[in-house]
Design a protein around this nucleic acid. Structure first.
Lengths: 339, 339
DNA sequence: GTGAAAGCGCTAACAT
DNA sequence: ATGTTAGCGCTTTCAC
């Protein structure tokens, strides 16, 4: 990679400035010289150093992306959306995997800062931590636009793209009620998570709007893991007064729930109806379609990146910008009331 | 981010050089001045610019990673492995998603080159393309170490980490034979893919070593998609002389196969035995454990990154280095012979 | 032990 | 229309 702009200049018998001009299509340069320079650039297979450009312009073309679990397809989708829009805008992304670990998250932010990223998109770890102040402080001290994707309680006042969890589960539970269900159980997540809280809220809202009394026996608190989905379901099946339908707050718990149901030879929706938050592609493939509320992950990424780009442009208006996406209700029949 | 090394120098009443020395722990610097400088660095919340450092040292600390589908958990795992090792070595990764698109792949390589990455880890698109020469040429002209992960025919002579597909499917089919199966069907991928080819090879090898005649009726050619798994299985079930066991060359096809089996009320392994290449976590969760050959994806990433780091160190010895991982046979019972 | 100064590859005034 | 030159923020000789 030894070859630099001055090599080109020499070879073409022009000054650095001229080469720089054709490189950036800036200023005046005679058509002929331009051609000559371009030819030599191609001949020498020259690519300008983004590093040097960044230093000179005092501005990089990279943005940072931090996700808690690169292994989870949900985040894969988000990243896909992000990098699509980034590509279109000639931005490249430095990716960090925080691994649901606060320290790593913090370290990543610091590294990214050293790299002089222009902006940051972060989907924070769901780890609950009251000493999050450090993370928050660092984020604030960055002095660059930060966009949250699928946010978290611990970052209250940030721009971001979010999912309307209340509306989502409201719609879902409503669909169950429309089917004639009145005894509707819910498997929910940790109550220090905003999404989980909101999903429970939507559930309650749907009940109350339909004048169905809230029964706390039907609310089972889990932690979004498939294990908890499994155990909660098992417990529910042992209850005397079983619900006829189950609303499950996330995809992992749905898997656990299904496992439990299968083990006990429950058929869906024959013996019990199901509706879940977040889609699980695999279930369709296997021919076990489960009705669900679908949060558009790729879109989350795309819009998040767009938000960031907007912020990058109007440096003045770093005003609060907040987009909430409404998830879609997708019905496959598992919500039907047969029991 | 206005604050620079000279701000620190001024504030501390020392020269740039001294600050640089404490920053890099290089050269001599009195303990006292060191402390003083460090204090001011902290006070001013200063982080040196990696950009400027890179330019000055003529060497970045970033490596490029290109994957064909960030959405696929398999690659998520690989990236996880890569970034783990990268972290430990203070390298950061610029991620590109080629989206199984040759043009994007090429464009990514060029961007990465402009960023002066120190090395590249690439899991090439599986797109078959005889004009791949461009991609290959660019890769060669990079002048930096390139590591292939889970390679492809089109890049014959590159360092990389691969999976021993022959051994893997040999072991798998062997396990079926040990169970007493003699009529073993195989769902395979496209024959221009090296992994697919090798998996078929392993199948044949296992048969021949056990003196079981090869029956071409039992070989069904698909394309690694779940749809093809579904259709091939359907076709197989209509055959007169059905196999008692099925060896399936990848996870997606296995899903399709299961769908077909479920639809026709086949039980595994009661009615037909199954063994698959690549694991599918979801199936275990659902309580449908399928015996499989498990290619260690995170390990692929880790070792790939390690390979790259090695290459980075011994710049002299850019000799051909090639690591092949042997996948593990994991038996859950779906391979048992009951029919 | 510490400082001065050149240079990394490029851009952007400022000249001409 | 093109060249000269001063930085961008840092590292690294070379002096002292």
């Amino acid at each position: 990679m030894a070859i630099t702009i001055s090599d080109i200049a020499k070879e073409a018998n022009v000054s650095l400035a001229t080469v720089s001009r054709v490189l950036n299509n800036s200023g005046y340069v005679k058509e002929d010289t331009k051609k000559k320079v371009l030819k030599i650039i191609k001949k020498l297979n020259y690519t300008p150093s983004a590093i040097a450009q960044s230093l000179s312009k005092n501005e990089t073309s990279t943005i940072g992306v931090i996700v808690p679990d690169i292994t989870n397809p949900f985040f894969g989708q988000i990243i896909k959306g992000i990098s699509q829009v980034a590509d279109e805008n000639n931005l490249n992304i430095i990716l960090c995997n925080s691994d649901e670990n606060l320290d790593k998250e913090l370290k990543s932010i610091k590294t990214l800062r050293a790299q002089r990223i222009r902006g940051l998109i972060i989907s924070p770890t769901s780890v609950d931590n009251s000493e999050n102040s450090e993370s928050l402080k660092t984020l604030n001290s960055l002095g660059i636009p930060v966009v949250l994707v699928d946010g978290h309680l611990k970052y209250p006042n940030f721009n971001g793209v979010f999912v309307d969890n209340i509306k989502g589960s409201f719609d879902g539970v409503n669909a169950l009620i429309k089917e004639g269900h009145e005894k509707i159980g819910i498997l929910t997540g940790r109550m220090n998570s905003k999404p989980a809280k909101d999903r429970l809220l939507g559930y309650k809202k749907a009940l109350s709007l339909n004048n169905i009394p809230f029964n706390s026996d039907y609310v089972l608190y889990g932690d979004y893991s498939q294990e908890s989905g499994y155990h909660l379901t098992k417990r529910l099946l042992r209850q005397k007064d079983k619900p006829t339908a189950l609303f499950i707050s996330n995809n992992m718990m749905t898997l656990g729930c299904l496992k439990a149901l299968f083990e006990d030879n429950y058929k869906v929706p024959d013996d019990i109806s199901l509706l879940s938050f977040d889609k699980i592609d695999i279930l369709n493939i296997l021919g076990i379609p489960i009705s669900h509320i679908n949060g558009p992950s790729t879109k989350l990424g795309k819009i998040g990146m767009q938000l960031l780009i907007d912020a990058l442009k109007n440096k003045k208006t770093l005003e609060f910008k907040n987009i909430t996406l409404t998830p879609q209700l997708v019905l496959y029949g598992s919500e039907k009331r047969l029991s």
